[in-house]
């Protein structure tokens, strides 16, 4: 009755609410943890110490990560009336000259419209007021808006935040300059301000904005992936990897993205250790660094460890929130899926027996692309992007009972797969 023991301990027993308390202690103490920051260094030291004190076998693996700093930033509309905008510069953006950029605005709703009106964009600040369709489809405006605007002669770009809901909250994120295209300053603005400027533009009113951004990119910083293990008793070289990322954006607390994922990965090992269990294979929690810049720490981990790929049984990642779990997303062979369908049946006491398709996660994707079975946590995420990369990503969106359920699911799946006689078939 191992699965029941794990669930009981996590949800009703002495460990209930522990992952929530750990997350609160961690985020309240450290705060947010952007790549390259002192806070991220502190976060890694904190977790190294905490997991060691928890009795786990912990080590750090050095990696290099981007170091972008936001600096002071502001934006004001000057014409047709004075109004301050809430903005957040986008990761990797260049800054403006110290005196800022003051220019007329061109508002568009799509890249297609921008190309059609290319001649109007020269010397202007391009505002993208693209509607939110889904994160995956809409985030291309954040990622490539600056380069697309620069191609048609714009001097800066302002991107409507990638969120389906807003209370005048800007949402930051990484953006990518294209090679050979001039690098112009770029920031996100709120849905409200994007729509405001869109309405002015529809009325034919001239809009002028002054943008100041002190952003700069420093040399890559030293950082670490944080690795905690329970060594397998029979095949210690074979691994079930479970993970979340420790870095966050430099706003809010990074409690949801992805403090929760990191904490349930730690908690899964704690639960198994507390019950005196030890699986056949090694259980390895990896708390990634530099995820927000495109899975930078995870890519270096993959490069270093891919030589042992045949020993990776299953890779798991939680990076879409730790709200009420709905099921497990899984990518693997038909034979592996059959096994996983049996494994999730063990989660009947917490009503999460659904095995879905498409395991996903930036940090485990290199392994999955190479054919290693991958799993991710599917939670009730309808509000996830309300808070994502914004000041709203704090402990207030987390719930202890929901985290108990996520921890139980994570621990049962990881333990059972690690303890089966055979590895999952590729």
């Amino acid at each position: 009755d191992v699965a029941k023991q794990i669930i009981d301990l996590a949800v009703f027993g002495a460990a209930q609410n522990r992952s929530y308390r750990r997350l609160a202690d961690f985020t309240d103490t450290i705060g947010n943890r952007v790549s390259g920051s002192h806070n991220l260094e502190m976060a890694i030291k904190y977790m190294y110490t905490a997991m060691t004190q928890d009795g786990l076998d912990v080590h750090l693996e050095p990696v290099k990560i981007p170091h972008w700093v936001r600096g002071e930033e502001s934006a004001q509309m000057i014409v047709p009336r004075a109004k301050s905008f809430a903005i957040l510069g986008l990761g990797s953006s260049v800054g403006t000259p110290p005196e800022g950029i003051e220019a007329e605005v061109l508002v568009v709703e799509s890249f297609l419209e921008l190309r059609r009106r290319a001649s109007e964009a020269v010397g202007k600040i391009v505002v993208f007021n693209q509607p939110f369709v889904s994160y995956g489809l809409t985030v291309v405006y954040r990622a490539y808006g600056a380069s697309e605007a620069a191609k048609v002669g714009a001097v800066a770009s302002l991107i409507r935040s990638i969120t389906p809901f807003s209370i005048n909250s800007p949402h930051t994120g990484w953006q990518d300059y294209q090679d050979g295209v001039k690098r112009i300053p770029t920031a996100c603005i709120t849905v409200e301000d994007a729509e405001l400027m869109w309405r002015f533009a529809q009325r034919g009113q001239k809009i002028v904005v002054r943008l100041m951004m002190g952003a700069k990119t420093l040399p890559d910083a030293d950082s670490f992936n944080t690795v905690a293990e329970i060594k397998g008793w029979q095949h210690p070289e074979q691994v079930v990897l479970l993970s979340g990322h420790l870095d966050s954006w430099d706003v809010g607390q990074g409690a949801m993205d992805d403090g929760g994922g990191a904490m349930i990965s730690w908690e899964a090992l704690s639960l198994i250790k507390d019950l005196g269990l030890r699986p056949r294979r090694t259980l390895r929690a990896v708390l990634w660094t530099g995820e927000e810049q495109g899975g930078v720490g995870a890519q270096q981990y993959y490069n270093l460890h891919k030589v042992n790929m045949s020993n990776f049984d299953l890779v798991m990642e939680s990076d879409l929130g730790t709200f009420t779990p709905l099921g497990l997303q899984f990518t693997g062979s038909d034979a592996a899926r059959k096994v996983m369908e049996e494994v999730v049946k063990l989660l009947a006491p917490i009503n999460t027996t659904k095995l879905e398709t498409h395991g996903e996660g930036t940090d485990i994707s290199p392994w999955m692309q190479a054919g290693v079975p991958g799993a991710s946590l599917h939670v009730a995420d309808s509000r996830y992007f309300w808070f994502h990369h914004s000041e709203g990503d704090t402990m207030t969106v987390q719930d202890p009972q929901e985290m108990n359920l996520c921890s139980a699911l994570w621990a049962v799946v990881a333990y059972v797969v690690a303890d089966l006689q055979d590895m999952l078939q590729r």
Partner: peptide
Amino acid sequence: ALPKNSRSNDTERKASHVAAEVAGYT
């Protein structure tokens, strides 16, 4: 190499064995 149907029988046998093994953790 095993004939196709033998492999299929073997896979089915293995699947049912794994199902029984996993059920042991209930």
